[in-house]
């Protein structure tokens, strides 16, 4: 439809604001080691704007896929320290989209509770 194409050029200006927010968060990460998470779905976007933000952020060196309650993709953007996290459900539909500014997104690290379970399982396996 032609009007969808014309709408794609619309702009709320939120893309630039988000880039500014990321810049401040990177500064904070360097200075205080404090990480930040931005919920992309909480910001009003014109059609095509979310894709434009993603294009502006680009693709960095690292990308990971998590399989827990459906897929999640964790991609470092072209700006080191800024990660784009997308959660999908088991039917590959997007549940949420976040930008996390940290050295390593917390969800990537092995979790304490899961390690406990692993230890238990391995111990059990070796006993058998």
């Amino acid at each position: 439809m032609s009007n969808v194409n014309t709408c794609a050029s619309l702009d709320t200006g939120n893309d630039i604001l988000i880039l500014h927010e990321i810049r401040h968060a990177l500064r904070k990460l360097l200075d205080d080691g404090e990480s930040t998470i931005i919920d992309l779905r909480a910001i009003p976007m014109a059609p095509g704007e979310e894709a434009r933000i993603e294009a502006m952020l680009g693709q960095g060196e690292l990308s990971a896929t998590l399989n827990a309650l459906g897929k999640s993709t964790i991609n470092e953007t072209a700006f080191s320290g800024a990660w784009l996290i997308t959660h999908y459900n088991t039917e590959d539909e997007i549940l949420g989209k976040f930008i996390e500014i940290s050295k390593l997104p917390s969800i990537l690290a092995s979790q304490h509770e899961d390690i406990e379970v692993a230890l238990e399982q391995l111990t059990h396996q070796l006993l058998v």
């Binding site: 919920d39 998590l66 827990a68 309650l69 959660h87 976040f98 979790q111 304490h112 899961d114």
Partner: peptide, 25 residues
């Protein structure tokens, strides 16, 4: 059989659903 990561993912989505900031996770 939901792992801790799965639970955290659920919590992140729940925060988004409740329109709460991600820092509340």
């Amino acid at each position: 059989g939901v792992s801790r990561r799965g639970f955290l993912k659920f919590c992140a989505t729940a925060a988004s659903i409740m329109a709460l900031p991600p820092s509340m996770v």
